[in-house]
Amino acid sequence: MIALLVVLILMGLVLFWALGAYNGFVRMRQEVKSAWAQIDVQLKRRHDLIPNLVEAVKGYLAHERQTLESVIKARSQAVDASALKDKAQAENMLTQTLRSLFAVVERYPDLKANQNMLSLQEELTSTENRISFARQFYNEQVSRFNTAVETIPANIVAGAGGFTKAEFFEIEDTAHRQAPSVKF
């Protein structure tokens, strides 16, 4: 009788724990999703800024057609990409072309000092930072989720509940964030 009671209590405890673990997974998965939505918002913000940028510099950079075209092309590729891996790749490409565009802009003092250009540049810098912060936050959430999914014994609940590891949003370029301006 007592043994049955003990077994029942133990089963109840295990069930209770499993429910908690399951709910924890659901919550974490939701957090990963909302973190991803943040990245998406910021990426879209960047895509929307680029036409304005191209428009602003077009008049000055008549001889730099190739650079401008590569920016436009990279943007449309980034807009079209849907799978996470493609998206990361296309965004990296876009970041690189934008950087080469700004390198070109440096050569045109008139354009560099243009107020419109300055504010666009500020907006883009800000958007780049937002993307990288959103990515950082997303990856932290993913890492938390993945750790939870793989750790024993919660991985049993994860397997039964159909929770699989989430994918990181990675960039190849580690020097992406602006380096500090002082050199020692």
Binding site: Q42, E122, E123, S126, N129, F133, Q136, F137
Partner: peptide
């Protein structure tokens, strides 16, 4: 323009906090 930069930075950091 200084305020615009400050506003952007606050928004960026608030993205970093999720």
């Amino acid at each position: 323009t200084y305020h615009a930069v400050f506003k952007n930075i606050v928004e960026e950091v608030s993205v970093a906090t999720g």
